[in-house]
């Protein structure tokens, strides 16, 4: 489809796509929030580790991950495009600032969205980019990966020490299935020794570590506040754009939106707060 045709898609269809992608992100957000709650479990990362392992290896999840990323991008691009187009519809602006009572969340959606994007980059830097190997973090690996993999050559002394240290420091899971909290340096050494071993990011350890620093906790709380503002607009707006706003149900949608907003925000916020205060 050439760009001309894309531009010719009606404004409502474009809005529908923004809403559709947004709605998908809303669902994802709920899922993400629920998963995060595992971090609060004081099991050394057993449950959360198992979960991230599944998420990191399952094929369907991997496909979904691409879809999700695409959704993010499209949601952002379309929104920005619409915002840019809409600006052009009033070439001469009013002298007086508007005193019309409006839904502030919607009016500021482009701003909260932009803020969100900035926060998101930081968030990705903290976690997601580790997975993509853009930045270094903390890792975990299955012990069987060592058992089953034949070292290419003699295991270097360095690697042996690193491995033993991990075992001795109690960084294995109870059932000895996993070795966790592997630092980036150790990972590099071990990886060299066992090229076939598949290291995964240890998000549990990373989260626990980062959420013990006050300014990171504060940063995340601000992040969640912005998320809250944006989805407060998004939830209701999605219903409106899908044409599901009706005199009879508009109140219900509003209440659901508020509930959703609080649940997600609090659900997210409780993790850094909990970790910080050692829960």
């Amino acid at each position: 489809m050439d760009t001309n045709k894309l531009i010719k898609i009606s404004s409502i269809t474009k809005k529908l796509l923004v809403a559709l992608f947004g709605a998908f992100l809303l669902v994802f957000l709920l899922f993400h929030m629920c998963a995060n709650l595992f971090i609060l479990a004081k099991d050394g990362g057993e449950a959360y580790g198992a979960f991230t392992h599944f998420m990191g290896t399952n094929v369907i999840v991997k496909v979904l991950e691409v879809v999700l990323l695409g959704t993010f991008l499209l949601h952002i691009c379309l929104s920005v495009y619409l915002w840019w187009q809409n600006r052009k519809n009033r070439p001469v602006r009013y002298h007086q600032t508007s005193r019309t009572k409006t839904a502030k969340g919607s009016k500021l959606a482009i701003i909260s969205g932009s803020l969100l994007l900035v926060c998101l980059i930081f968030h990705f830097y903290d976690f997601y980019f580790v997975k993509l190997n853009f930045v270094e973090g903390t890792y975990m690996v299955k012990t069987e990966e060592f058992m089953n993999s034949e070292p290419d050559q003699e295991i270097s002394e360095e690697a042996r020490v690193a491995f033993m240290n991990l075992i001795n420091d109690g960084k294995t899971s109870k059932d000895m299935q996993w070795i966790r909290q592997i630092s980036a340096e150790d990972k590099a050494v071990l990886q060299e020794a066992f090229p076939k071993a598949e290291f995964e990011p240890d998000f549990y350890a990373m989260a626990r570590q980062k959420f013990s620093i006050w300014h990171i906790v504060l940063g995340y709380l601000v992040f969640f506040l912005v998320v809250g503002l944006h989805i407060r607009h998004g939830f209701e707006s999605a219903f409106q754009t899908f044409g599901l706003n009706h005199y009879k149900y508009s109140r219900l949608v509003e209440i659901l939106g508020i509930i959703y907003c609080w649940v997600v925000c609090l659900g997210f916020a409780i993790v850094p707060i909990g970790v910080f205060f050692g829960l």
Binding site: S11, K14, L82, N86, T100, A103, S106, K107, A109, Q240
Partner: peptide, 16 residues
């Protein structure tokens, strides 16, 4: 769309 009206971003200023 053709006449140069913008799209709706659900601010409801119109309703107000």
């Amino acid at each position: 769309d053709e006449l140069g009206f913008g799209s709706c971003t659900n601010t409801y200023a119109c309703e107000a």
